[in-house]
Write a protein that binds this DNA or RNA. Structure first.
Length: 201
DNA sequence: GTGCGGATGAACT
DNA sequence: GTTCATCCGCACT
């Protein structure tokens, strides 16, 4: 199973890229522990004109600057003071695009993930939802701005892909502040998968 | 320096 | 359906 090549992340259509990430495998290797799973839910955040994006209007700060880098890096930030959210930076340098990973079907290191989440047994909420999967994978801000070609956090192609009929597009979650852009159908998920985050269908 | 609110999740009623 | 945990990032003074 090979890591996605840098060229994958350099695609300029972030929505197409968000769809293509479904079925890929996200892994972390932290303190000698390997964890990972199949990406089953994503959201695209598109450039300075996307009102839901942290980079809307060209906002460039210590937090958002990694979004302006060339694709192939992690963008991880703390949300609500509690949850770390993991994004993939995509596209070309200077254009702030990213894909938020919102749902993961656990595959590797189940025991480690259960321990990190303080759960006795597998339930779908182990990795359904962006905050939940980040915690299960041990993702925090120490992994921000990491090269996805490295050996701490990466995405691999295991040969699985979904047909257009298996992929649903819908409005993004938790972006009411974005006004009319909150309705853009830039959230993608695998139809019927148990590890898609709750505000489902 | 201060104040406000968030790309959520879990535990409630 | 409602509440609340919890803290940095960001805009403004």
């Amino acid at each position: 199973m090979r890591k996605l090549p840098l060229s994958f992340y350099h695609q300029e259509d972030v929505n197409q890229l968000a769809r293509q990430l479904l079925g890929k495998r996200l892994y972390t290797w932290i303190d000698g522990e390997l964890t990972g799973g199949i990406i089953v839910e994503t959201e695209a955040y598109n450039g300075i004109t996307d009102k839901a994006s942290h980079a809307y209007g060209g906002r460039f700060t210590d937090r958002t600057k990694v979004m302006y880098e060339s694709g192939g890096l992690s963008y991880i930030y703390l949300c609500y003071g509690i949850h770390h959210l993991f994004n993939v930076v995509t596209g070309v340098e200077g254009i702030p695009q990213a894909v938020l990973i919102r749902g993961l079907e656990p595959i590797e290191g189940l025991d480690v993930m259960l321990r990190r989440r303080n759960m006795p047994a597998l339930k779908t909420n182990l990795t359904a939802g962006p905050g939940a999967l980040a915690k299960a994978l041990g993702i925090d801000r120490a992994l921000n701005a990491k090269d996805l070609m490295g050996d701490e956090i990466w995405i691999a192609d295991a040969g699985l892909s979904y047909t257009p009929e298996e992929i649903v597009a819908s409005a993004r979650i938790g972006v009411d502040y974005a006004g009319d852009h909150a309705l853009l159908p830039w959230r993608y998920y695998v139809k019927g998968n148990r590890f898609v985050s709750k505000p489902n269908t």
